[in-house]
Amino acid sequence: MSDEEILTERLREAGYAAMRVEQAVGGVVAVAGLVTLQDGSQVFAKTLPGPALDVFVVEAAGLAALRDVGGSNTPDVLHASERLLVLEKMEPRRDDEDFWERLAHMVAALHTSTAGDRFGWHRDGRLGRLRQDNTWDRNGHRFFAERRVLRWLTEPPVEAAFDREERRALERLCAALPDLIPPQPPCLTHGDLWRENIVATGDGDPVLIDPAVSYCWPEADLSMLWSSPRPPASERFFAVYREIAGLHDGWEERMPILHLRELLSIIAHDDDDWGAAEAVRTVIAPFKRRSES
């Protein structure tokens, strides 16, 4: 059975009669696509061709938190189960300065209105298909070190990608986090905020999808946008965000360190790492040299 047939069958089981599926490209976890139903309406649907996981249930909970707690735009969840997620149809985003300015206002409001006193979440989540450890912790540096960086070192593809000295350099960098990252209160974060997880309403307002939510440093969200490929107009996002929410001096230099979590996740998923391993080596190079001196 093809991926499209699997998605169509699971839609039927959930009560959705699919007439046509335009399969989305670029995803590495789920089979997804824009679905035209028999009545002519359209929805966006995703399924997992392999064993059932809690990916979609966690995703739906994250979307609800971003909307209900953080005031962000998210698509309506029409169905969520271990096998299937159905969302209202959204539109592609525009990549002009006006759109990115609107996004800056929304993300800044999310970060500034949800300050908490603990890092984590009330349940573990997912980053891709792998589990995201969200165990509560009042120490942000320890939380980021143990649950966002070192957590990936036991994944077999990560073990294979780095030698002993490189792993020690990662550990040494994590030990130095209190000197590298200024104290920041936790806030509700999207957790996977790169350009492909930003779409739009019919009116052109930004909408967030595919979250991996937790209470974490706001700069962790910014690192996803900053360090991933993005259009030139996105520079407007950072300028406006800084005006609204403020940023500690040196934030640009911290972005590669905070992006380590995403780079290690890419490697752990054992797909094309898009140069992630070399990017990690660049970030940890000073700590490796220090260990060899």
Rank of each mutant, 00 (worst) to 15 (best):
R138N: 09
G140Q: 10
G140S: 13
G140F: 03
G140H: 03
H141K: 09
H141Q: 12
E146L: 09
E146P: 05
R148G: 00
R148T: 07
L150N: 01
L150K: 12
R151I: 15
W152N: 00
L153F: 13
T154P: 06
T154I: 13
E155W: 14
E155V: 14
P156N: 13
V158K: 06
E159N: 08
A161G: 14
F162W: 11
F162L: 12
R164D: 12
E166W: 10
R167N: 05
L170Q: 04
E171F: 07
R172I: 08
L173K: 00
L173Y: 00
A175G: 08
A176M: 08
L180I: 09
I181S: 00
I181A: 02
P182S: 11
P183E: 14
P183V: 09
P185A: 14
H190R: 01
H190V: 02
H190I: 01
D192C: 01
W194S: 02
W194Y: 08
W194I: 05
W194P: 06
R195D: 06
E196M: 07
N197E: 07
V199R: 10
V199F: 11
A200H: 02
T201F: 08
G202D: 12
G202P: 10
G202K: 13
G204K: 09
P206F: 06
P206S: 07
L208N: 03
I209G: 01
P211H: 01
A212V: 08
A212C: 03
A212D: 07
A212P: 05
Y215K: 06
P218A: 07
A220R: 07
A220H: 02
D221G: 05
D221K: 02
S223W: 07
S223R: 11
M224Q: 11
S227T: 14
S228R: 09
P229C: 02
R230K: 12
R230S: 10
P231L: 12
P231K: 03
P232D: 14
A233H: 13
F237I: 04
A239N: 13
V240Y: 00
V240H: 05
V240F: 03
Y241C: 06
E243R: 14
G246C: 15
L247K: 04
L247E: 12
H248M: 13
G250H: 11
G250C: 04
W251E: 05
E252D: 12
E253T: 15
M255E: 00
I257D: 01
L258V: 11
L258F: 13
L264M: 04
L264K: 06
I266M: 13
I266Y: 06
I267P: 02
A268V: 09
A268R: 00
D270V: 01
D270F: 05
D271F: 15
D272V: 06
D273T: 11
W274A: 03
